[in-house]
Nucleic acid binder design. Structure first.
Length: 917
RNA sequence: GCCCAGAUGGCGAAAUUGGUAGACGCGCUGGUUUCAGGGACCAGUGGCCGCAAGGCUGUGCAGGUUCGAGUCCUGUUCUGGGCACCA
């Protein structure tokens, strides 16, 4: 019987679906394990061969854990709201829901062919109202909570209101004005709403946003890169707008601290740390005067030790101090500068990083340590959004201040003994202080805390921690997203009642913004809530993906995002596999979202993803043909140096091992029908390069094609064989034959010609050794996610068993179980041929018996172990030949070498455990 | 500019964590098979010298530690990724 993978795979996929093999439920008698893939955005292009890499790895791990007796939750769904479907809708008028539905169907079909063990009964789609009801619910929860820095958790806003009515806000964290209980009780509704907005975790606030005119929407910081939108690559500018925001910055410290216990790649944790950007320093008050009035101005610095060298101050152009400190004589110049600065887009600022601009305000400050009068300048290099939007400038020890001082000829005072500041500032935090009054003679390390202490003693400032993490802008002026469950009464936003969720997307005639520049939802003119207008923005992409892993635990619950019992059983994701590109987006929003739900008691774990693995990207491997310029003649790669040629991408599907299928090439495009070729050795050799996998490079390899030609089992194993999971690597179809050959060898191990060749005889020592070596190796490899080396181990074992003509059931059955996570279809088929009625998914992972390996270990070439040889040489001055003899006689398990310096050698095959002298 | 990861045959990669470098697979070379094939199987395959046994050399580059270094240390070059006026 032949290995007919097409037939086998189709049959078992149907079997799994019909028998609901992978459906799971809460089962307190068994330990749980939750394996999650980052769910895909179903794009129109379908899956290419790179997408399933992580899915295959997680599937292998899930199947392995099942064999180990775990109750494995392994779900899949779709991140279905998003820009591409909407852009497509704008162009074609096709409703995004229709496009999305089609794309999902295609994704599902493609995934089904690969034989994944998902529990599809738990599928979620972020665009499904039954799902986004809970996204809206979470938003309302955030709206009705605030972050109490005293207790370090989110608390109900009602409690805050009660507090305000009793004692005002003098005893709580606040932003803006201070009021007492009487004032609060006299405030009207609008005023109260405005004040509470400063506390709510989801709030409406004026802020400078990334505005993308081409997309007609605002974007979050992680959706912008180098001044362009990540989706689409359109220019982005800064604009002040009133937007819904999430107060993620309150969670900065907990998001940072929580990283410590996560089993995530170090690089990814580092990215999150940078993104959160904690810096410890001090806030210090400087007296400033515009000649008429005097103020206290607060600045932030991490280098309080350099305060004696603060020779000027700088304000951000957007700072509220600018207006107060601009003197009459400087008014014209300052206004000119402000216009100049505000006109610049983010992109231009990025490009001109080193260009120094600024203007003098006319005012002076007093350096509290030197009592010198120092000028206050305005410059765009100081950011309004960080610290207090104002700095003390220490040109000797900060490179930006240095450049500014040089440009405008300001005083530079060195503060560290022997530092050279003739050409650049001395930024390093090392050396001995000088010119620094009470700090003189201290090391910088000691001077920083000493300076802060002095500041606190004088009562002009205090220790302060700042974070770079900004609140997440949560509004998008788009159609295809979750509507906000918010309506407006007299201009004041009110939350909808929970019973009225979900608030579904209305139908609109067009998906474009309105003529007056309102978001597309404004086109739904009769859309209202109890007669009041509803918020017209929608939520961003990360809204739907922030808690989807919780919904999988209990996807059909209509009363809660997740039921308490389900949540307490499944808890959090044990293993999360996905791309590193979500480091500062999804992965940080999700952690925030989860921490919030933890605070409010809806979930029982504070961190959502215990262990995380980033699978590498699979790049394309493009092939080229070389056309001699001005002709229709193509020259083979090796000979092209002799001609003047143009490199042309050729479809990788008509190239095999870099040999061009000339017939297929002629049919590929009419333009090549009459092409001529200059061959080498009667073949046309193509050139190749590693590039992004994309249609335009003709290097897209589609998993369906691979499944059809080689089978899903081959695809799965080959993707793992390609290299380490976490590493990026090009897809190269060339090597796939080797893996396919391996699967046929497996088949032939069971089938000799037409006969099933398996019998119940007792296995030999060698056979047992091969099996148990493999069990050990495969188990270790799977648990360390080293799937590529375990595929190799299978190949070695099968080669050895084939050579021994192994037909012992006792060997071959465990072999199938071991292999089944990697190549489930062929294993199920052979398993059932061996007479098993139950699916191999319900089998038990074989135990490793070390004795089977140790048994005849004297055959193992221990003598080659250099370490042992060296130690023996040292200890007994023996020659290599004598040592080899001793080992041959003694080197099996554990022996005493009587009368020598060596008391004991402990040897297991291939490994010296210890030598005791 | 700063931070992180990496560099091993013609190619993808292994290396028990300091002990025979290149396992396994691809490709290539030669062979076997009543072999139509992109079929199956066997042998060889880092480089240099040699008919051979064998020798020399070899993990980006330059040093160092060690009986012994792909692995540890110092410096350096290149490649990939992240951050980028964050005071």
């Amino acid at each position: 019987m032949e290995y007919n993978f097409l037939d086998i795979e189709k049959r078992w996929q149907r079997y799994w679906a019909e028998n609901k093999t992978f459906e799971v439920n809460v089962d307190k008698s068994r330990p749980k394990y939750y394996v999650l893939d980052m769910f895909p955005y179903p794009s129109g292009a379908g899956l290419h061969v790179g997408h399933p890499l992580g899915y295959i790895a997680s599937d292998i791990f899930s199947r392995y854990k099942r064999l180990k007796g775990y109750n494995v939750l392994h779900p899949m769904g779709y991140d279905a709201f998003g820009l591409p479907a909407e852009q497509y809708a704008i162009q074609t008028g096709q409703h995004p829901a229709v496009t999305t539905e089609q794309n999902i169907a295609r994704y599902r079909k493609q995934m089904d062919k690969i034989g994944f063990s998902y529990d599809w009964s738990r599928e979620v789609r972020t665009c499904d109202p039954k799902y986004y009801k809970w996204t809206q619910w979470a938003f309302l929860q955030m709206f009705s909570h605030w972050y109490n820095p005293e207790t370090n958790r989110a608390e109900k806003i009602e409690e805050l209101i009660t507090l305000f009515s009793k004692e005002g806000n003098k005893n709580v964290w606040r932003e803006g004005e201070i009021f007492d209980a009487r004032q609060w009780n006299n405030f009207d509704q609008e005023k109260r709403s405005e004040i509470l907005m400063n506390y709510r975790l989801a709030y409406l606030g004026e802020t400078s946003v990334n505005w993308c005119p081409a997309l007609g929407t605002v974007l979050a910081n992680d959706e912008v890169k180098e001044g362009f939108s990540v989706r689409g690559g359109h220019p982005v500018e800064q604009k002040k707008m009133k937007q819904w925001q999430l107060r993620i910055s309150s969670y900065a410290e907990r998001l940072l601290a929580g990283l410590v216990n996560l089993e995530w790649p170090e690089s990814l944790k580092e990215m999150q740390r940078n993104w959160i950007g904690k810096s410890e320093g001090a806030e210090i008050t400087f007296k400033v005067s515009n000649g008429v009035e005097e103020y206290d101005m607060l600045i932030f610095t991490t280098r309080a030790d350099t305060i004696y060298g603060a020779t000027f101050m700088v304000l951000a152009p957007e700072s509220e101090w600018v207006e107060k400190l601009t003197t009459a004589s400087q008014k014209n110049e300052v206004e000119k500068y402000l216009v100049y600065a505000s006109k610049k887009t983010e992109r231009e600022r990025q490009a001109e990083t080193r260009k120094v601009t600024g203007v003098f305000s006319g005012s002076y400050a007093i350096n509290p340590f030197t009592n010198e009068k120092i000028p206050v300048w305005i410059s765009e290099y100081v950011l309004a959004g960080y610290g207090t939007g104002a700095i003390m400038a220490v040109p000797a020890h900060d490179s930006r201040d240095y450049l500014f001082a040089k440009q405008f000829d300001l005083r530079i005072v060195p503060l560290i003994e022997g530092c050279d500041i003739s050409h650049e500032s001395f930024d390093a935090k090392e050396g001995i202080m000088c010119n620094s009054g009470i700090l003189n003679g201290m090391s910088v390390k000691d001077a920083i805390p000493a300076a802060i202490e002095e500041v606190e003693k004088r009562g002009i400032g205090k220790r302060k921690v700042n974070y770079r993490l900004r609140d997440a802008i949560f509004s998008r002026q788009r159609y295809w997203g979750e509507p906000f469950p918010v309506y407006y009464k007299d201009g004041i936003p009110f939350p909808m009642e929970f019973e009225d969720l979900p608030l579904e997307l209305p139908e609109v005639d067009k998906f474009l913004p309105t003529e007056s520049g309102e978001p597309p939802l404004a086109r739904a003119s009769d859309w209202n809530y109890m007669g009041y207008p509803v918020e017209k923005s929608t939520m961003p992409g990360f809204a739907g993906s922030s808690a989807y892993y919780l919904r999988y635990m209990d996807p059909h619950n209509i009363n809660a995002l997740v039921g308490r019992e389900e949540n307490e059983y499944w808890r959090s994701v044990d293993l999360y596999i996905g791309g590193a590109e979500h480091a500062t987006g999804h992965l940080i929003y999700s952690r925030f979202w989860n921490k919030f739900l933890f605070d409010t008691g809806y979930v029982c774990e504070e961190e959502p993803f215990k262990k995380l693995i980033n699978q590498g990207m699979i790049q394309g491997r493009s092939n080229f043909v070389y056309r001699i310029k001005g002709t229709n003649t193509f020259v083979s790669s090796g000979l092209r140096d002799n001609y003047d040629t143009t490199e042309i991408h050729v479809d990788v599907n008509i190239v095999h091992n870099d040999r061009l299928d000339i017939g297929a090439f002629r049919n590929w495009s009419p333009e090549y029908r009459d092409a001529d070729f200059v061959l080498e050795d009667d073949e046309y050799i193509c050139g190749w390069a590693v590039e992004k996998m994309s249609k335009s490079m003709f290097n897209v390899v589609n998993p369906d094609m691979v499944c059809e030609k080689y089978g899903a089992d081959t695809l799965r194993m080959y993707e793992m064989f390609l290299g380490p999971l976490e590493q990026s690597k090009p897809w190269d179809t060339n090597g796939i034959d080797g893996v396919h050959r391996f699967l046929r060898k497996i088949w032939r191990l069971f089938y000799k010609k037409e006969e099933l060749a398996v019998c119940d005889r007792k296995p030999s020592g060698n056979e047992l050794k091969i099996l148990h070596k493999l069990i050990k190796k495969v188990q270790e490899d799977i648990e360390s996610f080293s799937f590529n080396t375990s595929v190799s181990a299978f190949m070695i074992a099968v080669n050895e068993l084939t050579e021994l003509e192994c037909n012992a059931r006792e060997i071959l059955e465990p072999l199938l179980i071991l292999l089944s996570p990697f190549a489930p279809h062929i294993c199920e088929e052979l398993w059932s041929i061996l007479g098993h009625k139950e699916s191999i998914c319900n089998a038990v992972f074989p135990g490793f018996v070390p004795e089977y390996i140790n048994e005849d270990s004297f055959e193992y070439p221990v003598s080659f172990n250099g370490k042992l040889r060296y130690k023996l040489e040292l200890a007994r001055s023996l020659s290599a030949g004598e040592i080899e003899r001793i080992i041959r006689e003694n080197g099996n398990t554990q022996r005493f070498l009587a009368g020598s310096l060596i008391k004991k050698i402990i040897v297991v095959p291939g490994k010296i455990i210890n030598i005791v002298f």
